[in-house]
Design a protein around this nucleic acid. Sequence first.
DNA 1: GTCTATATCCAGATAGAC
DNA 2: GTCTATCTGGATATAGAC
Lengths: 191, 191
Amino acid sequence: MVADLPSPREQVLRTALRLFTEQGYFNTSVHDIARMAQVSIGSIYHHFKDKEGIAKALFEQLVTRMGAAFDAIEDAHKTAHDRCHAVVELLFRMTEAEPAVMAYMLHAQHQEFMPGELPVCSSRPFTQMRAMATAGMDTGEMRRMDPLVAATCLFGGPIRMISLRLDGILKNPLPQYLDEVWSASWRSVTA
Amino acid sequence: MVADLPSPREQVLRTALRLFTEQGYFNTSVHDIARMAQVSIGSIYHHFKDKEGIAKALFEQLVTRMGAAFDAIEDAHKTAHDRCHAVVELLFRMTEAEPAVMAYMLHAQHQEFMPGELPVCSSRPFTQMRAMATAGMDTGEMRRMDPLVAATCLFGGPIRMISLRLDGILKNPLPQYLDEVWSASWRSVTA
DNA sequence: GTCTATATCCAGATAGAC
DNA sequence: GTCTATCTGGATATAGAC
């Protein structure tokens, strides 16, 4: 038996992720994608409505993946502290393993090429993160503060680290900063 | 005596800032700028080498402005605590007063349309912020940690708040969160 | 479902009069 | 320095055979 080759649809999404993050959405032509994915233009337009459709499908795929990963974290850990810590650890590891995924989720200005769509930080993974923070205040693990402020204090530093890493400012892999960053973040929200 | 009308160059920069942040660089044509700035295309290309030249000039102008504002803060305050606090306060006030300026500095993926330029977070204002954090460790106001981590802990939360505000997630003006956010940030870097 | 060839459009940039 | 008119390339998207 023979392993299936990746479907053209998958090939296109994979290639689009790479090119969109390396060169930007607007600097990437559909021809570029076709060429690098070894698929014809016609085939792309058969599978996707238009160029924006590629970006949307890609975004949904990644949002779903991250959402599932966060669900798993909620199952595996019960305190807000452990859940939020696990989220940051996951994000840091993912940034190293699949920088393009993180870049597409964080950096891209989706509103510019997917007009009418909600901004990234309204997507489910971000909502989940905010819910975890809020839960921590309800259980008393964290001190009472504005919910959005709480989430921002917990995750703002780590997310900023990811940006610096993606921009090449941080030379070392993120996980080695995990303890230092996390203890600072947690300290900022406890009584 | 009559007030000078804004020079065409200024008009173009003003308009470009507005359109680039509202619609994005690639969704804005030079014709759009010409029309809204009430200047002819030819005139634009007389003052700027090309479209990218507009973006670069705009960026330099804003970087210079922020750099000067930060210099003033360094003059007016002597401790790292007071300086960093003043920076966050300034950024929060600026986000409300001139959201487009903050959006262009923070949100825009400049690498996409100014290839070869250094990323935003290598620009002087960001360097100044990191230097202030480092100074705070030297004076003993802050505990010792990796310099980049320290800066990120101090400013990552506030910057994230600005993003949320620019994206319309935060409904209230930033200054009203200043105390809560700042005390959390500072707490995260002190012994 | 996949391909090639092509239509259509519009952006960036220039020429050259005033 | 400013303007209008124009050139030109390249992008998105489609047509229609296989």
